[in-house]
Design a protein around this nucleic acid. Structure first.
Lengths: 238, 238
DNA sequence: AAGTGGTCTAGACCACACC
DNA sequence: GTGTGGTCTAGACCACTTA
C-alpha cells in the first residue's frame, strides 16, 4: 500500500475510534508530516481521501475539522454496484433463478449502448435474484460475447462478476447509471411477486472496461419497498 | 482559476473538439508539461480531473487514452442537486408555487436528521416547482431557522439557494441522498397532476454546510415520466 | 503578524507495458 | 532497455482566518 493510503487509513481509524473527536481540529499538516515522517504533500493527499469520504472538512487559515456525520458512520452501501450483487450481499443468502439465457444479434439500441457491430453476438440474460428467500431484483443483461466469453448456465447461477474477475481477469473502470421509477410490467408482477399498481425502481447501467469499451448493459428492476439507493456527494465546488 | 483547472479545461475542449481523438493516445505528461510550461505534477492533477469525469483513461507504462464515451458527451445533469433547481434549469421557465410555509418545532425524526434540539424552530416548506408550465417536482423541505435566517415568501417564490449564497454567504460541503420509488400520495396526485397508480420517484436529501452541520432535509417527489437520475462512477478500485 | 491549508516546482524513484 | 504514469520529496509562494 502506498504511503498516503496507509496514512489515510490510520487517520480514519483515529476518527472512528474517537481519538480525533467530532467537530474538533485535528493536528495541522506540518505536524502530521513530522509525525508520519513524510512530506506535507503526502499528508495532504491522505486528507484528500478523507475529505472525499466526508469525514473531515478543511478550511484555509483555520485548520482541519472532523465532520459531524450522521449518515457517514453508517455502513453506506453507496451506489457502487458494478462489482456485482454477490459481493455486496455477503452474509445474506443470495440465489439466482435463470429466466432466460440466449445468444442473439444485437438490436439497434444495444449496438449503440455496447458500441458493437450488428455481427457481434450478445448474451441476453434475464435473472431473478432472490435474497434470503424473497424476490429482490429482476436483471435484464446484455453482454458482447467477445468480452464475456465462455458463460455457462452454471456460472450465471452464481456470481458472474467473480467469474469475470477470477477467470477472465477482466477489470472495470466504472459505470454509467440511470435511476428511474416505472410501472410494473407483467414480467415484474410475475417474478417480483408484486401488484399491478406497485411502482418499480429501475437502474439502467452500462459498465465499462478499463480501456473504455462498454462491457454490459443491464436494467435491474426492483420492488419499490425493498430497495433504495443512497449516496454521498462531498466537496463539490459551489 | 488555478493552473491545473485551466489546463483541464483546455484538454477537455481538445477532446470534445476532436483534436484528441476517441480511443487514441494523448501526449504524455512530460510533453504536456513542456507545452503548458508547468511541472509534471500540475499536468497530472489536471488529468486527474478528466479521469474522474470519465473522459480519459490512464495506463501505467502505456499512456493516456481518450475514452470511448457514449453517455459522457451528453450533457449529463448528474446528481449534483444541492445548488438548487434554478441554477440547473437555466434556459427553462421555472416557477414555484408555495403550498405551505410555516415555522414549527421539529419532530423527533427532524431533530435527528438536522441534529438540532427540540427548542430550535424549523421552517417547513412545501413548494411545487413548475417547469415550462408543467408540474415538475413537489418539494417538502425543512431548514433550521438559525441557519436559514430571514426567509420570506418572496424569497422562496424564487431561488432559495441564490438567497442563501448571495445574501447569507452560506457555503455547502455536500449532501447525502437517497433515491426510491413510491406510490403517489393524495398530495402527489393533486399537485403533480398524476394518476393514483402512477409511480413517484422520490429523492430524500440532507445538505451539509462546510462545517458539517446539516442545513436542509428535503423530500423531492417527481412524476415517474419526467425525471430520472444519471451519474457516472469512474476510477473505482476493484 | 502568525498560522493554516492550497498550489506549484524540479527532480527523484518506482511499477508497469512494450519492444 | 525505454518510455509511460504513480508516488514522494523539500521547499517555495499564495490565500485565507484569526488574533
Amino acid at each position: 500500500m502506498v504511503k498516503y493510503e496507509a496514512i489515510a487509513k490510520e487517520i480514519r481509524s483515529r476518527i472512528t475510534d474517537g481519538i480525533y473527536k467530532v467537530e474538533s481540529l485535528i493536528p495541522d499538516q506540518v505536524t502530521l508530516s513530522e509525525e508520519f515522517k513524510v512530506s506535507r504533500m503526502t499528508i495532504k493527499k491522505a486528507l484528500d481521501i478523507l475529505a472525499m469520504e466526508g469525514l473531515i472538512y478543511r478550511q484555509r487559515g483555520s485548520g482541519t475539522f472532523v465532520m459531524k456525520n450522521s449518515p457517514l458512520n453508517e455502513k453506506n452501501a453507496a451506489v457502487n454496484e458494478y462489482d456485482g450483487l454477490t459481493k455486496q450481499m455477503q452474509g445474506h443468502k443470495l440465489e439466482s433463478k435463470i429466466i432466460k439465457f440466449t445468444v442473439e444479434f444485437p438490436s439497434e439500441e444495444m449496438m449503440e449502448h455496447l458500441m458493437i457491430e450488428k455481427s457481434m453476438p450478445v448474451y441476453n440474460l434475464i435473472r431473478l435474484r432472490i435474497l434470503d428467500g424473497k424476490p429482490y431484483v429482476l436483471e435484464h443483461t446484455y453482454m458482447p460475447t467477445d468480452l464475456a466469453t465462455g458463460l455457462t448456465e452454471e456460472i450465471i447461477e452464481g456470481s458472474i462478476y467473480k467469474y469475470l474477475h477470477d477467470e477472465l481477469n477482466i477489470k472495470f473502470s466504472g459505470a454509467y447509471r440511470k435511476i428511474r421509477a416505472d410501472k410494473a410490467s407483467k414480467y415484474d408482477q410475475e417474478y417480483l411477486i408484486c401488484d399491478v399498481h406497485d411502482p418499480i425502481l429501475e437502474v439502467e447501467q452500462i459498465v465499462y472496461l478499463k480501456d473504455g469499451r462498454p462491457f454490459e448493459h443491464s436494467r435491474s428492476r426492483h420492488r419499490y419497498d425493498t430497495r433504495s439507493f443512497t449516496f454521498i456527494d462531498m466537496n463539490q465546488k459551489f
